[in-house]
Amino acid sequence: MLDVLYFAWVRERIGLPKERVETGAATVAELVAELSARDARYAAAFADISALRVALDQELSDFDAPLAGVREVAFFPPMTGG
């Protein structure tokens, strides 16, 4: 089981901030493919991966990264701090 978190417009498009996901996905990209296939909201949020960033257990990562041992995955747009 993974905790999957969404922030900013990713959260708005999907319509929720957080959910638990039962998945056999081996990589972030596989998880994205699974989520995108759910419905139009997910498909819209993940339509352009280049516009997204991903963090695994609160560390920035990339879409090729394996999910083995990961407990928390977060998807969000490029950050705008400062």
Partner: peptide
Amino acid sequence: LMDYLKSRAPFWKK
């Protein structure tokens, strides 16, 4: 610090 906070600290402004 400012350069990195801008694009590496997870904040989003609306």
